[in-house]
Design a protein around this nucleic acid. Structure first.
Length: 425
RNA sequence: GGAGAAGUGGCAGAGUGGUCGAUUGCAACGGUCUUGAAAACCGUCGUACCGCAAGGUACCGGGGGUUCGAAUCCCUCCUUCUCCGCCA
């Protein structure tokens, strides 16, 4: 959520920046400014009347103490009208505040200066690409065929138990999941990220804090009986650890990591995008989250990108890093880098990580601030997060890229996590 | 799930209808003292909104109510603790 102060002070700037996300904010900005002015006017009036009633109450107290009951009763009458007026103003205030909130919540985050304009994924900018291991064979199988051939994943069984998009990992396939989770967590903790194991259901306040609610309500599974949501990413519970928190400036950098299952309804997806492991309703992911000083958040973003890069490199995958254009960015992000790995069987790029700086957008919703040691002011912090990494597409890419006539080679870094297994037969 | 108790500032802990945004202690920060440190002493020490400022307003788990006036009384929800039940 953008701050009212920003909108009030730089309305043209806000409109101009949001145009890069293909969002026309002109009307909303005008409305917000008008509502804010109204809010301030009501507040002034309300404050004056409350002040008056407060001093009257004190007088009445004094009069009663002096046993001047007559005068006290006269003063009481005066408070009557004031109370009525305050009641009305209170109502107005509530209305205006909720209208203002409603408008504010609809505005996406401003894209950073270097975000390229563009409509969709075609306009993203590839900032780096690097070759990894390349399969020798010419008749390459896709991972869903490999998974069946080597008994690693049972998609049909998942259909039976739950439905489409909920695969069952079996035997060595299950072990490979566990290996990847451990490998990613070990790398993250070695890089200074503190490990958490958060709840995988969250309440409404948490969903709002990171921006999933109310905008993307349809993307999360909802457990109505208890009014809870299944998390679409560990970003939600982990970032919300810092909801309503004022950290010390010396606490920075705050670095967290967590492995969680993730649940996404993915309404509206179809075709080759959802085949095999490409898009699931439940998947595993290790997430890294950072809370940063505003002056250092972009440096932190670079560090996170470097961390994720070290993971795909260690796994020997062919990858590229793209900077998302305005039209492809999420509602909440100011700058996002996506990692895509090449999947040799499908011959396509698969997104395996998204690393973003949200600047103060989430912090404002979360009321996550730090105390500035020089000015003694409380200031909104910056939040960032990134997948490090999401498992299914990594697994798809490993299966497809490491396939040989004799089986699937286990990437060297995973061998210790696989109990010494070097080839899956 | 049932019964009881409790939720106050970073922590501890006063306050049961009026000048209480809240005594006090600890922690923290600034200073005096000291070669340095500790101790001692002095000062600062919640958040938000309005205001150039002085200052004003709101907030004592959340919401609602009673009252001229609520941290204090009432209702309700949430959370924590104790006991019972159930259970991985």
């Amino acid at each position: 959520m953008l701050t009212v102060q920003l909108i009030r002070e730089n309305p043209e700037f806000v409109v101009k920046r949001l145009a890069i996300k293909n969002f026309d904010a002109k009307e909303a900005v005008e409305k917000i400014i008008a509502l804010d002015e109204k809010r301030i006017a009501i507040q002034k009036d309300l404050n004056a009347k409350q002040s008056e009633i407060n001093s009257l109450s004190k007088e009445i107290g004094a009069l009663f103490a002096q046993k001047k009951v007559e005068e006290a009763n006269a003063a009481k009458e005066k408070t009557g009208e004031l109370k009525e007026a305050i009641k009305n103003l209170d109502q107005e205030m509530t209305d205006v505040a909720s209208q203002l909130q409603k408008e504010l919540v609809l505005l996406p985050n401003l894209p950073a200066e270097i975000v390229p304009a563009g409509k969709n994924a075609d306009d993203n900018v590839v900032v780096k690409s690097q070759e990894g291991v390349a399969p020798m064979e010419s008749n390459l199988l896709c991972h869903w065929d490999l998974a069946e051939k080597y008994n690693l994943i049972d998609f049909e069984l998942g259909n039976k138990l739950t439905g489409a998009g909920f695969p069952v990992y079996v035997g060595v396939g299950a072990k490979l999941q566990r290996a990847l989770i451990s490998f990613f967590l070990d790398r993250a903790t070695a890089a200074g990220y503190k490990e958490y194991q958060p709840p995988i259901m969250v309440n409404e306040a948490s969903g709002f804090g990171t921006g999933q609610l109310p905008d993307k309500e349809g993307q999360m599974y909802y457990v109505g009986m208890d009014n809870l949501y299944l998390i679409p990413t560990a970003e939600v519970p982990v970032t919300n650890i810092f909801r309503d928190v004022i950290v010390k400036e010396s606490d920075f950098p705050i670095k967290c990591t967590a492995y969680t299952p993730c649940f996404r309804r993915e309404a509206g997806s179809y075709g080759k995008d959802v085949r095999g492991l490409n898009r699931l309703h439940q998947f595993d992911k290790v997430e890294i989250v950072r809370i940063e000083h505003p002056e250092r958040s972009y440096q932190a973003l670079d560090e996170m990108v470097a961390h994720v890069e070290s993971l795909v490199q260690a796994l020997g995958l062919t990858y590229r890093i793209v900077r998302l254009c305005g039209g492809d960015m999420s509602f909440t992000s100011a700058l996002t880098y996506d990692f895509e790995v090449f999947s040799a069987g499908q011959k396509r790029w698969l997104e395996v990580s998204s690393v973003s700086n949200f600047e103060t957008f989430q912090a404002n919703r979360l009321k996550l601030r730090y105390k500035d040691e020089k000015t003694k002011k409380t200031v909104l912090a910056h939040t960032l997060n990134g997948s490090a990494l999401a498992l299914p597409r990594i697994e798809a890419s490993i299966l497809e890229n490491y396939q040989t006539a004799d089986g699937i080679k286990v990437p060297d870094v995973l061998v210790p996590y696989m109990g010494g297994l070097t080839i899956i037969k």
